[in-house]
C-alpha cells in the first residue's frame, strides 16, 4: 500500500465525515418525529428545494451560454471577464448579498428603476432568494461547463458546420449533447451550493417563514435558541440532498453506460 497516499486520504475522509458523525451522535432522536412534523420545518424545506431548483434553472439558462462565450470565442477582455465570473466564489456571501442590494435593492442602480417602472422590488421575496442563490452558485456551473467545452473536440462542431448547421444549431444539436455530462455535473454542484446558501440569501432576501426562510436560515436561527432543533434541521437538509444527489447520479451513470 502506498501509505503516503493512504494515510492523508484516510485523514481527509475523517476530516469530512467526523463532523457529520457529530451531528448524528448529538441528534435528539426521541423528539425527531415531532420536530419534523412541524409545519415550519416542512415549509422551509419546500422553499429550499424550490428555490435551489429555480436558481439552478436560472444558472443553466444564463450560465451555459456564458461558459460557451468564454470557451469558444475570443474577444478583448475575455480573461478579465473569466476572472470576474469567479468573483462570487471568493466574495464572502454576505458581501455578495450587500452587493446585490446595491444593484437590485429598492434604492439600487437597477432596483430603483424596477420599483418605479413596475412597482416591483426583489428583496424580501422568494424571487429574491432565487437571485441570491443563483448569484452565489452560478460560478460552479460556468466553470464546470467551460471546462467541459474546452475538453470537447471542436472538430465535431466543424463537421456540423460543413453539413449546413448554423452556429446556434451546432451549439444545440452537437455541442450541448457532447458536453452534457459536464453540464449535469455543473448543475449538481450549482444546486448543492444553492441549497446550502445562507449569507447572500439572508442579506439580500431577508428571512421570513414561508417566503424567504430557507433551511440554512432556519438552521441558523434555531441555533440561537435551540441547538437541538438546528441539528434536526441540518440532518433533514443533509438527508434530502444526499438522497437526491445519489438518485440523480445513478440515473446518469445508468444513462451513460
Amino acid at each position: 500500500m502506498p501509505w503516503l497516499l493512504v494515510v492523508p486520504a484516510v485523514l481527509g475522509m475523517a476530516f469530512l465525515v467526523l463532523p457529520l458523525a457529530g451531528l448524528l451522535v448529538r441528534a435528539p432522536w426521541s423528539t425527531l418525529p415531532w420536530r419534523l412534523s412541524e409545519p415550519q420545518v416542512l415549509e422551509a424545506l419546500r422553499l429550499s428545494l424550490v428555490t435551489a431548483s429555480m436558481a439552478t434553472a436560472v444558472c443553466l439558462v444564463l450560465g451555459v451560454p456564458l461558459a460557451w462565450l468564454l470557451a469558444r470565442t475570443d474577444f478583448p477582455g475575455r480573461r478579465l471577464l473569466r476572472a470576474l465570473v469567479t468573483v462570487p466564489l471568493v466574495l464572502p456571501p454576505v458581501v455578495g448579498g450587500v452587493a446585490l442590494l446595491l444593484v437590485l435593492g429598492r434604492r439600487g442602480l437597477i432596483g430603483q428603476w424596477l420599483e418605479s417602472a413596475f412597482g416591483f422590488s426583489l428583496p424580501f421575496t422568494t424571487a429574491g432568494v432565487v437571485v441570491a442563490e443563483a448569484f452565489v452558485a452560478m460560478p460552479f456551473l460556468v466553470i464546470a461547463v467551460e471546462g467541459a467545452l474546452r475538453a470537447a473536440d471542436v472538430r465535431y462542431e466543424e463537421a456540423a458546420a460543413t453539413l449546413g448547421a448554423s452556429r446556434f444549431t451546432v451549439f444545440r444539436r452537437v455541442t450541448l449533447p457532447l458536453v452534457a455530462p459536464g453540464v449535469l455535473a455543473g448543475a449538481v454542484l450549482c444546486w448543492a451550493r444553492a441549497l446550502g446558501e445562507f449569507g447572500a440569501t439572508i442579506t439580500f432576501a431577508g428571512n421570513f417563514p414561508g417566503r424567504t426562510q430557507t433551511m440554512p436560515l432556519a438552521v441558523y436561527l434555531a441555533l440561537e435558541t435551540e441547538p437541538e432543533a438546528a441539528i434536526v434541521l441540518s440532518l433533514v437538509l443533509l438527508a434530502v440532498s444526499v438522497v437526491i444527489l445519489v438518485a440523480l447520479r445513478d440515473r446518469w451513470v445508468g444513462a451513460a453506460a
Binding site: L101, L102, G105, I202, T203, G206, N207, L217
Partner: peptide, 20 residues
Amino acid sequence: TPVTLEQDVKATLTKVELGE
C-alpha cells in the same frame, strides 16, 4: 407584519441604511 426577520441587529440596521 415585517418583510423580514433578521438574524442580528446589525443586519436589521443595514436594511434601513440601504433603504430597503
